[in-house]
Every structure is written in C-alpha cells, then in structure tokens.
Design a protein around this nucleic acid. Sequence first.
DNA 1: ACCTGAACACCGTTCAAGT
DNA 2: ACCTGAACACCGTTCAAGT
Lengths: 241, 241
Amino acid sequence: MSTIARKQRELMQRNTLLLDIAQEMLEESGFASLSLDKLAARTEFSKGTIYNHFMSKEDLLTALCVRALQIQLSLYLRVFDFPGNSREKILALHYAYNLYARQHPALFMCVLSGLAQNIVEKTSAHQMAERHTYERRVTAVLDEIVQTAMDAGDIQAPRADTVEIISFANWAMSFGTTALLQAAGRASSIERIDADTAFIRNIGVMLDGLQWRPLCKDWDYEDTWQRLHEFFGVKAGESVA
Amino acid sequence: MSTIARKQRELMQRNTLLLDIAQEMLEESGFASLSLDKLAARTEFSKGTIYNHFMSKEDLLTALCVRALQIQLSLYLRVFDFPGNSREKILALHYAYNLYARQHPALFMCVLSGLAQNIVEKTSAHQMAERHTYERRVTAVLDEIVQTAMDAGDIQAPRADTVEIISFANWAMSFGTTALLQAAGRASSIERIDADTAFIRNIGVMLDGLQWRPLCKDWDYEDTWQRLHEFFGVKAGESVA
DNA sequence: ACCTGAACACCGTTCAAGT
DNA sequence: ACCTGAACACCGTTCAAGT
C-alpha cells in the first residue's frame, strides 16, 4: 500500500527532525538543559508524540550516541583514501577522531556518558542494537588498519600482542587525550598545554611504544599532519572549533 | 568564645555527614538518582539546611569531586614509600590511579563530568578553589616523579619534551584506559579484553614510547605489578571491585 | 542566627479523550 | 491507529514563619 509507505516515510522524517533539533539543543547548551518539554515546543509536536519515537529520555540520548558514531564512522571511512604508509594511515584515523571530537564536543561526551548503567537500562533494545552496530563498524575500521600494518610487518611489538590489544592502546590514548583536552581551560592542570601539540605528541609516543615503523625519529610526521589538514579540508592555522 | 568554636565544629561535622551520605548514595545508584529530597530524608535534615551547606546540587557534585581528588591524592602519596627505580615509581602511581578508579568508580566519573560547563557555572567560588587546590596537589606528585626521572636521565625522549608534556602523556593514557575499561561489558568493543592485562600493557606501551628506562624488554614489570599488589594491600588474585 | 517545610516552577512519564 | 495535552509524581530552589 502506498499510503503505508508514505506513513512510514513521514515517521522517519519526523524521527530525523526530532533528532536534528535534539542535537542542536545538545550542542547549544549541553545535556542538562535538553528537556522533552522544550523539544516538543521547538518541534511543535506534543510530548506524547515524542514518546512514540523514544521510550524515554535516555532512549533519546542513546539515539544521539548513534548519531555521534555515524559521524565518526563517516570520517573514519575517508581515511582509506589517504595515501601513505601504515603509520600515516593510523595517524589519519586519529586525526579523524580528533576532528570529530572538536566539531561535536557535546556528542563526543555523549558517547561516553551514554554507557552509564542507568542510561543503558532505560534504552530500548532496538536503539541499543543500533548503537552496537555502529560501535562494531567503527572498531572494524581501526582493526583493519592495525591488521594490515601487522601483516606488512610494520609493527615490531612482541608477538603476544593481538589486534585487539594494539587497537585498544590506540583507542585509549586517543580517547584519553581528547577527553582531557576537551576539558582544557576548565581543569587547572591542563590549561598549560597546547591542545594540538599534545595530541600529536601523545599519539606519537604511543605508536613509538608499539614499535610501529617508521618511528618518530625516522619520519617527518608534522608534514603528514599538514597533509591531513588539507586532506580533511581544514586550512592551515584555521581553528577547528 | 567556645560556643562559636563548638558551633563551627558542629557545622563541619554536619558537612562531613552530608558528604558521607551523598557519596554513599552516589556509589550505590549513580548520580542520576542522587536527589536532595532523598539526601534530606536520609540525613534527617531539611532541604533548607542542605542549601545552607551547598548553594546548588552542582555545588554538592563539585564537593564530591574534591573528595575523589583527596582519595586519589592519599593513594598517590603512598607511592613515595614504594622502593624501586623511577619507572617502577611511575608504575606505582598508575597502580594507585587504577586502584582509586576501581574502588570508587562513581567518584572517578564524577571528576570528569564535574568539568562540564553547566556544573562549573553553578559551583561556589570556594568549592571551585578547593577543587583546584587538590588538582594541583595531585598533579604535583606526578610532576615530581617525572622530574626526578628526567634529572636521573632515565627518560631518553627528545630534549623538547618538558615535564608537562611527559606528565600529560602519562595522565592521558592512564585516564583513557581506565575510563574505557570502566565501561567494559557495556560497550561491545571492549568486552573482548581483560582489564588488568590491558591496563598494564597500555602503560607499558606509553612508557616505552617515552623511552623511559628500563624498557619493557629489559625488566620484569609483571613482578613489579605483583609487588604493587602487596604494597597496596591487595592480595594476589583478589578482585578489587 | 539558624532551621524548617510549604510553595513554586519545571520536568519525565502516563493515559483518557479526541480525531 | 495515532495524536494530544491534562494530570501526576518527583525534583531543585526559594522564602516566610518559626525557634
């Protein structure tokens, strides 16, 4: 029935609209002031209708996490087109991660806080499955780049290191650095460091520790970083925020 | 006047009591369900009295952050008594951090989420100053251990690296790994890794990357880790959680 | 001077009444 | 079948009344 198809299309459009506005509100003024009352008012739907789309406020939050992961994934996928050796490729992935976190700081934090138990509990099974799907797809990109590098013999770390361990080291350093720098200026202990320099250095330290060739001392990764600026369309010296 | 002194002592005792219960409630069932109504009920004071101690709910949260930092600091200070080379000392610091995060997962997350803008805005100047004080003291311990190692020539990283940069690399890896593992079991991408192994490995990678001697391959840090279990009073094989 | 609890505004959630 | 908005319970915050 074409009427059913139309109904479903309208439902999906409304879902998109609700998430668009919710995301706007989140990025404008944080999760604290994202209320369903205001969302209803700004979208001109009733609160009851919103509950037709999301079974709780936490369910909405998880839906926003999914959006965040989609953005991250789309940036990740562009990395495959960046030319260079395997370490430049993984650097490109970290660049993409950093870019995503800077362009969407609120969404970035969402993904972490969305893991709190009370959030997960109140999220629908469907939304949770959606989240897991995108988490897996994001992880798969990271794993693939690591696997390729291992196959090529670019990573000289001990044999015992599996793809999982190496991927996790990458993820932890990238996430930790980004999350702490995000809070920069608010925490007294961070304000003393330039964000870009610290990020590049931390990733370099971690990759050197993994013995991922070529090491820092044997390659000009500052040049790679410049090329990444151009590749991702961020002009040199331009602030991302 | 002794009556004034007594009054002030009583005020401080009540402050401690309020924070004790608030901490309990936070660790029991998360920040979401920490309401001032319940806090008032459980402490048998009125809500008005609570507002006499904390100018907002966010102010209370920051007070809990201060508690978290105090716990972290007291564990950090014990590290000075742990015998070993400079890399074993910094490993001890990471052990302490990990221990604190596992024993007080809710408080650990508090410290991060307490940096959100809407929290800081609603926190009293006094409480914020308190937070900064303890942040500085915690940072100072880390910096001191790094500085000592640099003076001893144990860190062979490029000259350009300052204490701040090296300390930050340590902090970022420790925080990132701990925060991600904290969420383990909930995020699909982490469940595949053993928490303790991943933490030790990530710290090892980062320290190797800094060229902090002796490197992993030249020292048995698993043995050091065992000694740290005993030093901090955690029996081998015993779960910290 | 300090404490109390009623009162208020706001918010998440539900559901009977409408179309 | 879907949408609405009134109704409810709960929560953070304020403040007049009490001691």
